[in-house]
């Protein structure tokens, strides 16, 4: 019994980690809290939904298309809007991204109505047995994919020229600029990667759960919890935060009931902020 609950928590935690990865990157590099993150997840989910429904493209393949489309959208939004006020007080960018979220959500509502939709893949129900616990293949594959994407991001950030430029910009904007980094371009690329990661999470979400234009707000809040619990500024942060949240939620809702899911996650958020504001992995001071 408990094995099943913990496995469910871990599998969901992987998805949470991927959801928060893009937010954590944007937050860590540019100090922007992207409230529109959930809206980008929603757009990614719908991209996958339409590619599947209209053209029958398998979600695990359209993942790449969704990421590419959302990368371009993210690049344009950062370059055309957010970069204009990026150095203003923090709540300015906070409200700005909220404005973007309201805009995207309501556009989606106009285009696609409030109907709840589902990507019905043929293999959704197939599963296998592991020590008495049932594991659906789709969930396991989504989990592995989340880890692979995190690993790819790690390699990009640490082993490539682009990654060096992103890290340099994050550490010292002026120094990076003096060394010939086009910071405006790098910011836009970082935001684009963040939204592409959101699209990846949205695609996996669409395979596992029903989607609707209003799904984003809730997922933004979940991503906050993961970012804060894991701690910012490390690649492992979102994974640790995601798995922690997944397992604790899984155990908590088993004891208290599913209506307590939000109460559990936000209580964790507030407690971590009070007692360990830098997150589980964060260093003090």
């Amino acid at each position: 019994m408990y094995l099943q609950i913990i496995i469910n928590g871990i599998l969901k935690g992987g998805l949470y980690a991927l959801m928060a990865l893009g937010m954590s990157l944007i937050w860590g590099v540019m100090d922007i809290i992207n409230i529109a993150h959930g809206a980008f997840i929603m757009l990614g989910a719908y991209t996958t939904y339409w590619l599947f429904t209209l053209y029958g493209i398998d979600p695990f393949i359209s993942l790449l298309a969704a990421m590419l489309i959302m990368f371009i959208l993210g690049y344009i939004i950062q370059k055309g809007i957010i970069n204009l006020v990026i150095r203003a007080e923090i709540f300015i960018t906070l409200i700005l991204t909220f404005g973007i979220e309201i805009f995207i959500n309501n556009t989606a509502l106009l285009l696609w109505t409030a109907d709840v939709r589902k990507v019905k893949v043929a293999y959704a129900a197939s599963n296998f047995n592991f020590l008495g616990a049932t594991i659906p293949y789709v969930r396991l594959f989504a989990f592995v994919l989340a880890l692979i994407i995190t690993l790819i991001l790690y390699i990009i950030l640490n082993k490539t020229r682009l990654g060096r430029a992103i890290r340099a910009t994050s550490q010292d904007l002026d120094a990076a600029r003096l060394n010939g980094v086009n910071v405006s371009h790098i910011y836009a690329i970082t935001f684009g990667i963040g939204t592409a990661l959101a699209a990846a999470a949205g695609t996996l979400w669409a395979i596992l759960f029903p989607i609707s234009p209003a799904m984003g707000g809730h997922l933004t809040l979940k991503s906050f919890v993961v970012c804060i619990v894991g701690g910012l500024g490390t690649m492992m942060g979102p994974i640790v935060g995601g798995l922690t949240l997944g397992i604790v939620e899984s155990l908590g809702t088993n004891w208290l009931g599913t209506t307590y899911e939000s109460l559990i996650s936000f209580t964790i958020l507030v407690l971590v902020l009070i007692f360990k504001p830098k997150g589980i992995l964060g260093k003090e001071g």
Binding site: L221, L263, V270, L273
Partner: peptide, 18 residues
């Protein structure tokens, strides 16, 4: 900064859930 904003947001959401 952001941490205060998120903490207050978290408290509001936790209260709603409660």
């Amino acid at each position: 900064g952001h941490y205060f904003a998120i903490a207050t947001l978290g408290i509001a959401e936790a209260m709603k859930a409660l």
